[in-house]
Amino acid sequence: MLQTIPLEFYLILSAIMFMLGVIGVIVRRNAIVIFMSIEMMLNAVNLTLVSFSQFMGDSAGQIFVFFVMAVAAAEAAVGLAIVLALFRKKQTVYVDEVNVLKW
């Protein structure tokens, strides 16, 4: 057979990528880098969905990945617009310098 990688390896790889994304969100201060870390987390979940879909022979997982990508595109547009608006208002993209909603 062509395929010899068991499902577990894909799941662990996906978990590692998700954790990298979480660590990026927690550690970094730059809003754009936090944003990229969120994209990484979405991609980790996509990998899980695709591998389950292909190992179980059900194409629903791949359809979900398609929708996740569409939502990620929408999120990218809105998120970056927020970053732009924030920078115009506060001259910063560092999240610890933005506390207008904190009181």
Binding site: M1, Q3, T4, P6, L7, E8, Q54, F55, M56, G57
Partner: peptide, 10 residues
């Protein structure tokens, strides 16, 4: 998990 091969329909 016991899934060592891609599904036949993959």
């Amino acid at each position: 998990t016991g899934y060592n091969q891609l599904s036949d329909k993959a």
